[in-house]
Amino acid sequence: MGGNIYIYIAVMALVTYLIRMIPLTLIKKEITNTFIRSFLYYVPYVTLSVMTFPAILDSTGNLLSGAAGFAAAVLLAFFGKSLFKVSVIAVLVSAAVLVAEIFIA
């Protein structure tokens, strides 16, 4: 190892923290500009959608299992099930498909 590991850790921690901290402390007031306000309002929906899909399909290493987990989560979320239920059942459904595939194959 060339560099000092603790300096590496300090550098990465500092950079990561600053990226999170600067906007949160710089934007103190409610933004009145309609465009920026609307933009920031839509950011979570876009970001979370882009992060979820198609990554969820590969998340279990098996397309069918990932797709089953995705379908189960969308269905449960559509019917207003809690965060906890949706995520746990997504795990169980995808695991069930994974196990079923192993046994059938």
Partner: peptide, 9 residues
Amino acid sequence: YGMFIAIII
């Protein structure tokens, strides 16, 4: 990912 879906749907 299931959690994200529970948030956006």
